[in-house]
Design a protein around this nucleic acid. Structure first.
Length: 259
DNA sequence: AGCACA
């Protein structure tokens, strides 16, 4: 899966522009800057969902997002190393997240948490404050149903995820693959989910596919869920699209539900 | 659209 290697190790610790000709390129950075995020998602939920989806690329030191006008729809995900950030950027580029494709770039500057770690941190006022000129405000409203409360499932410890991707295959599921594949069904059976998974997170992933009806989780059985579509063709498309999708270090296993 | 350090 790590089929993308880069020259990134060279400039891990500086933010020089590599490409001064275009002015559009930003040097690699341990932090990715994401925009085009759905602005209706509450910050807390947004951060959790981002963590769920990005922790597969490496240890996340911090996720920053703000709800101010100037910073809505944007987030910074700080990884432990550039390689993780690079992989995250490439692999999740344009990923549909709450109905909108993520736009991911390297952050322009080093994150404070990183600067503090390497001793180069300088307090705020020394830095270039970004001044903003008046802008016309356009409407922004997406209407999707993601406003339901989310339990504070994370231990808050972003740093507890194992190092990089090549994590064996976390078990926890009895019969990982059924002997014979179940016959097609408009209901999908999802296994091997992390315990922290919420209905909202799954909805976010599955509702992008046509025919999505609902997600059902079974409180008494963590790690599994059912996702219903209008018909078998629709559920099949979603199954193939999301098969093996990683939430934290867990790879989703999707099969048709038994009838 | 919008690159911060809640």
């Amino acid at each position: 899966m790590a089929l993308l290697e880069r020259k990134d190790m060279a400039d891990v610790n500086n933010n020089n522009n590599n490409n001064s000709s275009t002015g559009t390129e930003v040097s690699s950075n341990m932090t990715i800057y994401i925009n085009n995020l759905n602005e209706n998602i509450k910050i807390d939920e947004l951060k959790k969902a981002l963590h769920a989806v990005f922790s597969q690329f490496g240890k996340i030191l911090e996720i920053l997002a703000f709800k101010t006008l100037k910073h809505k729809g944007q987030a910074w995900v700080v990884f432990e190393d550039v390689q993780s950030a690079s992989n995250a950027m490439r692999q999740m580029q344009s990923f549909p997240f709450y109905d909108k494709p993520m736009r991911i770039q390297y952050a322009k500057t080093k994150s404070d948490i990183v600067a503090k770690a390497d001793g180069t941190f300088v307090p705020r006022e020394k830095r270039r404050r970004h001044e903003e000129k008046g802008k016309k405000k356009k409407d922004q409203h997406d209407t999707n149903q993601v406003g339901v409360g989310l339990t504070p499932a994370y231990g808050g410890a972003y740093g507890t995820t194992p190092p990089l991707s090549q994590i064996p295959y976390l078990g926890g599921v009895k019969s990982m693959v059924p002997e014979a594949p179940a016959p097609p069904n408009n209901i999908l059976f999802i296994q091997n989910l992390p315990n922290e998974t919420t209905t909202m997170m799954l909805q976010m992933l599955f509702q992008q596919y046509t025919g999505f009806k609902e997600v059902r989780m079974v409180e008494t059985k963590p790690g599994i869920a059912f996702v219903e579509y209008g018909d078998e063709m629709q559920s099949t498309v979603a199954m193939h699209a999301l098969q093996g999708f990683k939430l934290q270090q867990y790879s989703m296993l999707i099969t048709y539900a038994k009838k």
